[in-house]
Design a protein around this nucleic acid. Structure first.
Lengths: 199, 199
DNA sequence: TAAATATGGTACACTCTGTATCATAAAATA
DNA sequence: TATTTTATGATACAGAGTGTACCATATTTA
């Protein structure tokens, strides 16, 4: 049985095309890029490009897949509902994004970003939901676990995305701590309303 | 002094171009639309199009401005921190989006949606922040009011956007109530952790 | 009514896309 | 290693879409 995807030349070509696109996105933004630009940067030909990808958008999707996998790899050890740890586990995410600030700003402002954001969101919901189900007795929950998870996930993601646009406003450590605190009964306390300690 | 923007023909042309784009977005999606499509739908000519807009993206921006203004008009009477009202004021927003579901799904999945989402987010942060400053003594707040506002805004917006993708999962009334509840000390309670009543 | 100006039709150069063909280079396989 | 298989590169081409120039016509403004 032949598996053409494992041909060395194929892997090499696709990787250099992906790298070329990422590099160009950082240089001039997704919209301004042509297929010719990509193959010039990747040092290959237009014909070869079209043998691998239908168009620029399909290559972007492939890139986003790789970036997404990398992001998930950095998320997976990162609990969002462990609200007693200090520093909060989500700090790992903030530090990782800070290290790759240019890349993620470019990616999350590119044309495909709506899809990436949704994938990240849905992944976060999935992770949070699994954590909650493991840690809390489901039958006692007055609100569907899906919605509680969603709320935590979008709040955390929204804070992260805002921070990517405003990375100098607060440190990663501070953002992680605040975001994490506010997620767990913290909004009222954040506004200075006194709440008794948890039971 | 002449203000060419007030020429009847100009207003008519620009309006019909905007309507044409919106209509086409709903029909076939933003990406597949050409300038020719737009002017056919608007019953005008390509030359005229380019006299008003640099390209398709600029027209989209103009459309989004109009849609954004309309959205803001429906948001303004809608407090996000009034956490005692029942039904919560944010229900107005859910109902409005439900009435214009196709439009907002198309808009928020289109190419320019990242910018719109950010504008909506920043507007929400601004509104929430103003409300908090009016209602709470600032000097007693242990967390910057900007971050508290941001957290509430992105959580609310995130729930709304998810719901646009999953409009049949829960009713507008239920989403509004849950989202609102979770925002205010509700995450822990939502998970079934007993919290004493507020002071 | 007269002046100003927006529109519509046609035409054109230009960029980019997506595909076909074929010789060549590189990798897989026996 | 020898042979087969397959990916690549160079060139060429048709087609779609873009953005602009020109000028006659229609509409608005003053």
């Amino acid at each position: 049985m032949r598996t053409p995807d494992e041909d060395l030349r194929v892997k090499r070509t696709e990787k250099s095309l992906r790298n070329a696109l990422i590099s160009l996105i950082l240089k001039k933004g997704y919209d301004a890029i042509t297929v010719q630009d990509i193959v010039d940067e990747a040092e290959t030909s237009r014909v070869t490009f079209y043998r691998h990808y239908k168009d620029k958008a399909e290559l972007l999707t492939a890139c986003l897949d790789v970036v997404y996998q990398d992001l998930v790899a950095h998320m997976s050890p990162c609990s969002l509902i462990d609200f007693h740890s200090d520093p909060p586990p989500v700090l790992i995410l903030y530090k990782y994004l800070e290290e790759n600030l240019d890349l993620y700003r470019a990616i999350l402002n590119s044309e495909g970003s709506v899809m990436v954001q949704k994938r990240i969101r849905d992944y976060l919901v999935y992770v949070v939901q699994r954590e909650i189900v493991e840690a809390f007795p489901l039958h006692k929950m007055p609100i569907p676990v899906q919605l509680v998870s969603l709320h935590i996930a979008v709040a955390e993601l929204g804070m992260l995305l805002w921070w990517l646009d405003n990375p100098t406003a607060y440190s990663a450590e501070y953002m992680a701590k605040v975001s994490h605190t506010l997620n767990f009964g913290g909004v009222l306390e954040g506004m200075g309303v006194k709440l008794p300690a948890l039971s």
